[in-house]
Design a protein around this nucleic acid. Sequence first.
DNA 1: ATTTTGTAAATTGTCAACAGTTGACAGTCA
DNA 2: TGACTGTCAACTGTTGACAATTTACAAAAT
Lengths: 221, 221
Amino acid sequence: MKFKPLENLDEQVAEYLSNRIIRGQLSPGERILETKLARELGVSRGPIRGALRILENKRLVKLVPRRGAQVSELSVSFIDRLYDILIELLALATRKAAQNRTRKDLTQIRRSLSKIEACALKGDTYDYYNAIFEFFVVKIEAARDPLLARLLRDLEPSARRIQFASLARRKEDLKRNVVYFEDAVKYIEEGNAALASKVIREYSQNEKEFALNNTRTHIKK
Amino acid sequence: MKFKPLENLDEQVAEYLSNRIIRGQLSPGERILETKLARELGVSRGPIRGALRILENKRLVKLVPRRGAQVSELSVSFIDRLYDILIELLALATRKAAQNRTRKDLTQIRRSLSKIEACALKGDTYDYYNAIFEFFVVKIEAARDPLLARLLRDLEPSARRIQFASLARRKEDLKRNVVYFEDAVKYIEEGNAALASKVIREYSQNEKEFALNNTRTHIKK
DNA sequence: ATTTTGTAAATTGTCAACAGTTGACAGTCA
DNA sequence: TGACTGTCAACTGTTGACAATTTACAAAAT
């Protein structure tokens, strides 16, 4: 058993803020005041500053020297660009997963695929996305590439934020999407890196278009 | 004229440390002690901690809670993985640059190409790499994608570190490499995104192999 | 009206002190 | 020997105070 190093306050505060931003409880552009937040959470400003630096890496806040922190914007162009990058990196991760997966990875991937299928059937959009993220986490683990894993983990909160914002309108087409995952798993099992990454690329491209359409009509810019 | 926000001590310290790590004055695995560094630089530990968080994002240091910071390792597998990612992201940036470049971008790209050619002729390896990085910076600027730009800027120090470590053995084949850049510029001018990104992909793949060969024979692991 | 300037309040930057953890090492016990 | 355990010094974690900067706003000048 491998133990994760204990978190310090920096990371706990980061986790707290991250959740609030993803769920939209803190709106884009809103200022985050160190003093106020420190008072609210009952800690000093040191950990708050550490947390803000962590969130800066995850693109959840924007830090300007001497001017403080604000929740980063979620514009159409940002979504556009984020997905462009995710498409490439997820395709790369899928390729590597197809090449490096062990038998143990495959059972885990199968298991998380079942979870996606179950959520799609139930039409539970929130859990569906959780299952999807879990699927990607397992797959990235199988890719055996810690650098890529970290890059994707840093981008994940932004993706979650976008998807959280469009949850309400995502009821119908879940089952249609599941096919992508079923295909991807099939190709990963076969070790067919080219086809596996192609399928994920198509899936991500679709997600991008959904997110863009949804955002253009419901959110600003 | 757009003014860059004034740096605070966090960023100045990060800059200082970044240079020392890239130049190998701090060796991989070496611990960085907050107290000691603070004394050396004549600042308190606050800014040091800020700087360490910044360098963590750039993968130059590894931070473990309650155990402090150390200069991150530069193993063969890290180099391998870093280039895999750079290949994809630089190709993406090139594609976008070919699509979005303005006339003004083109003159800048031409100018930085000349610099590369001059350095290659003189055989000045150090300046050659600087010119290459400048070339990419200009190109990334032309891609009009701030998120991608930031991702690449965060990975740049690691690339510089690798290249700095192999500078001494990089004398002969500069001229051979210049052809890639000349081709890439040609395609970017023509707006041929597919070919431009293909050329850069090949170049990056070559660089990866050079770095790997060099590292395997001269550095540990 | 519009811009400029002056001032006070709010906010971030930096520091130094203290609290809590970790790692190394010597001493103890089988 | 070799595995535990207590102790201590060296760090990191966290805090609260003070300094420097920015912002908001009102008064003065154009």
